[in-house]
């Protein structure tokens, strides 16, 4: 059942949520729509920032700040580097083969599947039948204990994945040097 919000009696949190949602959706749309690569990147930065704001509304301070540090402080900066250093004009844009477009569509459909599965799984939590009384999820102590006890195995797998990616990145940059 979708509840239609009462605009006249909206709480400040609801107003904030609406404003943030508008910013998130508008900048996400502009990221795809804008023709200039630099502007795309900056819209994406604003989009990530407003997502951090959403996390703050959910009382997830740690998640909000990690999102800020990782996505805005590291990934988008590197993205800007690439855009600044490469000559991304319309003329020297490579023609994308059909298989790439097909791949993109398949990946998009798979992503939708994952998202649907995620929302289905999170439904009991959103309905309020999930018991969170007495748990302080703002506290990073609770989060740390949860990650290293209950979710130990996925956590370690994720760290191994990151390590592999890091070694791969170093290897790629080294290889280029040898070829020169």
């Amino acid at each position: 059942m979708i509840q239609i919000p009462d605009i006249a009696n909206a709480t400040p949190i609801q107003i904030l949520f609406c404003v943030l949602s508008v910013i998130t959706l508008a900048t996400a749309f502009l990221t795809i729509y804008s023709k200039k690569p630099m502007h795309n990147a900056i819209y994406l930065v604003i989009c990530f920032t407003s997502i951090s704001g959403h996390y703050l509304l959910l009382n997830a301070q740690f998640l909000a700040l990690v999102n800020l540090i990782v996505y805005i402080g590291a990934i988008m900066i590197l993205m800007l580097f690439t855009i600044m250093l490469m000559n991304l004009n319309k003329e020297n844009e490579v023609h994308k083969p059909r298989i790439t477009r097909l791949g993109a569509i398949v990946v998009f459909c798979l992503m939708c599947l994952v998202l649907i599965a995620m929302f289905m799984n999170s439904k009991p939590i959103a309905d309020g039948s999930y018991d969170v009384t007495g748990e302080d999820y703002q506290s990073i102590q609770v989060l740390g204990k949860l990650l290293l006890n209950e979710y130990m195995v996925p956590f370690e797998f994720a760290s191994v994945l990151l390590l592999v990616a890091m070694i791969g990145a170093v290897l790629l940059s080294k290889k280029e040097k040898i070829e020169k």
Binding site: Q61, F62, L65, I69, I72, G73, I77, Q138, S139, I140
Partner: peptide, 15 residues
């Protein structure tokens, strides 16, 4: 309770 992370976050936006 994530004060230091907040500082790191803002510093990284400062770039």
């Amino acid at each position: 309770n994530v004060g230091i992370l907040y500082i790191f976050g803002i510093v990284s936006v400062g770039v």
